[in-house]
Design a protein around this nucleic acid. Structure first.
Length: 403
RNA sequence: GGGGAGAUUCCCGAGAGGCUAAAGGGGGCAGACUGUAAAUCUGUUGUCUACGACUUCGCAGGUUCGAAUCCUGCUCUCCCCA
């Protein structure tokens, strides 16, 4: 089904940070409408992180919109580039992956991505198909298309260079290879986070160098993680994974800062601009932000699981945190009965896997963070009983099963 | 090839022979409070049945009663010159 140019543009623009160049996008869309030929929309994926989180879905949602508009979506698994290692946002050299790791990651990647994209309408390609065939001569030719000064324009290269941090020569090739992918596919549009701007534009330049029309670069914002400051990433452990359990998702969403609520609605849910504006007004008028977080959590859980799970997660959350009850599923841990069942609590907590060391366990005890069957415990020893529930902090529980 | 600087605990970063399990900040965790695992405040943050012992300041040795601190060699990184 076709949509008017204006309508398409409106959908495409929602949530983007930048589209360069805008006027060429309009032209490409016009042409696509006239010729009834879909545009090729490319997204490159680095297979180093097999766990997709909401940060990744920002771009994937946009891709899905293109797909719904009838355009052709092409995913490139950067299996070849992954072996080389992209410079990371942390301004440190990323480790190189082995072929095995990459294949495994790519498979799990696809599975997760198709929770959002339509697998029947998505083309998946591996960039080793063309890059692995490069001869050294081809590499040099490709490298000659740009200059060191231009490469150093890239933000994190510049930063690392200025900070006296190491940069491997191989890292310079990353943008070149990614750019070459666009040449190979004759991409019309490439999506990416704002951190990809340099790479996306490199693709555009290379396409022109190889006599093609340059692709449009469409940048989506980088989603902040649960802390609200740093970008969402697995290594920072501030992420919500699409494969997280409903309960985890609910809890994690509830832990975001209030200021982040509307941003999350814009970037990870399909709600319209009007609906979001409305919520903003209501919150300014004094409505409790907590309720919007609940709504956000439920939308997200429904997307990646289903409505029932979303409802259950809400109920459980209210029980544990608002009413201070126990969760309905507590991990059970088997214990040998040492002595006559009298346990030193720090050791008990460690054996139950609730704390990492007895020192940690002592601290928890001293700080009043230990509860047994809902009662706060302060003495150092405890006679354990079967099915006793031990709790550390607000969210770590274990049920003792005596062997 | 020559010269210089550096590597500290989860991260950043002080410390320059004993007062150092190592300042400060970040992050994490716990408690209080509440609107929630938000915000804020307080405490805590190597291990060990523990007012003591053991392990930790790039790696390996050495000097010393005593080393993160001094010496030697090695590994890695950065800068300047060529």
């Amino acid at each position: 089904m076709e949509m008017s140019l204006e309508k398409q543009l409106e959908i495409i623009k929602r949530g983007t940070v930048e589209i360069v160049p805008m006027d060429e996008l309009v032209k490409k869309l016009e042409k696509s409408l006239n010729d009834k030929k879909p545009l090729k929309v490319k997204l490159g994926l680095d297979p180093s992180a097999p766990d997709i989180h909401l940060g990744h879905t920002v771009v994937l949602q946009k891709l899905k919109q293109f797909q719904d508009l009838g355009h052709e979506v092409i995913l490139i698994i950067g299996d070849f580039t992954g072996r080389i290692g992209d410079p990371t946002g942390k301004s440190a050299t990323r480790k190189q992956l082995t072929e095995d790791e990459i294949n495994k990651n790519a498979e799990s990647y696809k599975k997760q991505i198709f929770r959002i994209l339509d697998p029947d309408k998505t083309q998946v390609v591996y960039n080793s198909h063309w890059l692995a065939k490069f001869k050294f001569e081809d590499v040099i030719r490709l490298a000659a298309k740009t200059t060191v000064a231009r490469i150093l324009e890239r933000d994190d290269f510049k930063k690392r260079y200025d900070d006296n941090q190491p940069i491997g020569i191989h890292e310079f090739f990353y943008p070149l290879m990614q750019g070459y992918d666009s040449v190979e596919l004759k991409a019309d549009i490439e999506l990416g986070g704002t951190d990809q701007k340099f790479n996306l534009l490199m693709g555009r330049n290379l396409q022109k160098e190889y006599g093609q029309e340059g692709q449009i670069a469409l940048m989506m914002p980088i989603l902040e993680g649960l802390d609200g400051v740093l970008k969402m990433s697995k290594s920072l452990n501030n992420y919500i994974g699409v494969e997280d359990s409903p309960k985890e998702m609910f809890g994690k969403v509830m832990s975001i800062k209030d200021e982040l609520i509307l941003r999350y609605f814009t970037l990870v849910t399909p709600l319209s601009n009007e609906e979001i504006k409305m919520m903003e007004k209501e919150m300014v008028a004094g409505k409790n932000p907590r309720d919007y977080k609940v709504k956000l959590a439920k939308i997200i859980i429904t997307q990646y699981h289903n409505i029932e799970e979303a409802d259950n997660a809400e109920i459980e959350f209210i029980n544990i945190f608002s009413k201070n009850q126990l969760p309905d599923e507590i991990p059970e841990v088997e214990l040998e009965l040492g002595g006559e069942g009298n346990y030193w609590i720090p050791k008990l907590l460690q054996n139950l896997g609730l704390v990492s060391s007895t020192s940690d366990g002592k601290r928890m005890l001293e700080q009043g963070g230990v509860k047994v069957n809902g009662e706060k415990i302060t003495e150092a020893n405890l006679n354990i009983e079967d099915k006793m529930v031990v709790q550390v902090g607000k969210r770590k529980f274990a049920k003792i099963i005596i062997k």
